[in-house]
């Protein structure tokens, strides 16, 4: 049959197909563009500041008269709030997952899980003010030396914010463990708790680890909560009682100001951005790789 190349239907089909393809690759191009700008601007930055000083310096004062460009205080601040968040989110998330997957009656689980996932819809700015105006004063009653801005309070709130994510993904991983593995454990006289900790968690290990790593990655990238409640003060410390600044909140701070383009201060945003990008990207890749392994376990 001869193909009618110029028929109206053929032209419309081609146009539709083309526009679908465009929308599909659009976000990829945008992402690539962002990465390109990030790399380009930070290369400009590293022309002026040696990369060794940047990575090993312990003072970050790019906006001062005598600027210093050591990224370590921001990295320390990021890791500190992340550590606080993770120490809340991982245990609570895992316990939530075990409860929902192994203990909760079917109806309860079907009701609670969507609600849990809804918690992810709370805007982070709300969490930020909650940390600053509610949790910090509350914690100050316990820890008298706690600053008004500190790493502890936003870290804890960030942890609570991530619990639903860690819980929900871990629960999926536990639920994916085949029933005959559970039965094997129960047949040996194990209790639910023994089955959960000794058999199910090892069985679902790659999925749970993926949930943990994605959770960590979200904590590293979280911006609003730390920008509001952690203090905007680069501080090379491991003490969560002190005010700190994270990579993300530094970027917010500088972006809000009116720095002229092309200045070294302006380029610090991109230098901090690429450090952040590499941190979250590597966690995401590990998480993605672990998640892919879930199905290979059985």
């Amino acid at each position: 049959m001869k193909k009618k190349i110029f028929s109206k239907r053929y032209i419309i089909e081609t146009m539709i197909e083309g526009s679908l393809m465009l929308s599909a690759v659009f976000s990829i191009f945008i992402t690539l563009g962002i990465i390109f700008v990030l790399c380009y601007e930070s290369l400009e930055f590293f022309k002026e500041i040696p990369i060794k000083d940047f990575l090993t310096g312990t003072v970050w004062t790019p906006l001062f008269a005598n600027p210093q460009f050591g990224i370590l205080p921001l990295v320390a601040g990021t890791l500190l709030t992340t550590a606080v968040a993770v120490s809340v989110a991982l245990p609570i998330g895992l316990i939530t997952a075990i409860y929902l997957s192994e203990y909760a009656p079917h109806k309860f689980r079907e009701t609670v899980k969507p609600i849990l996932e809804l918690l992810e819809a709370v805007p982070t700015v709300v969490y930020g003010y909650f940390a600053l105006l509610f949790l910090t004063p509350l914690l100050q009653k316990v820890f008298e030396n706690l600053s008004g801005f500190n790493a502890l309070s936003p870290g804890l709130i960030m942890g609570i914010m991530i619990v639903p994510y860690v819980g929900s993904v871990s629960e999926d991983a536990l639920k994916a463990v085949p029933m005959h593995i559970r039965e094997g454990s129960y047949a040996m006289g194990a209790t639910k708790l023994q089955t959960a900790f000794k058999v199910l968690i090892p069985s679902a290990f790659s999925g749970i680890a993926a949930a943990f790593i994605m959770g960590i990655s979200r904590a590293i990238g979280e911006t609003m909560i730390v920008a509001i409640a952690a203090g905007m003060m680069p501080n090379f410390t491991a003490n969560p009682m002190e005010p700190i600044q994270t990579l993300t909140s530094y970027i917010v701070q500088v972006s809000l100001g009116d720095l002229p383009h092309g200045t070294i201060e302006y380029k610090t945003i991109f230098a901090a951005g690429i450090v952040l990008f590499i941190m979250t990207l590597s966690f995401n890749i590990i998480g993605f790789w672990l998640k892919k392994r879930i199905r290979e376990a059985y």
């Binding site: 005959h180 039965e183 047949a187 006289g189 209790t191 058999v199 069985s203």
Partner: peptide, 28 residues
Amino acid sequence: RMRISMVFQKPNPFPKTIYENVAYGLRV
């Protein structure tokens, strides 16, 4: 179940070492 044990249709070892699989019931 402590007194009556079961072997299933499909082999269902736990994701542990050979030794730990056998030791499981004892540890429990």
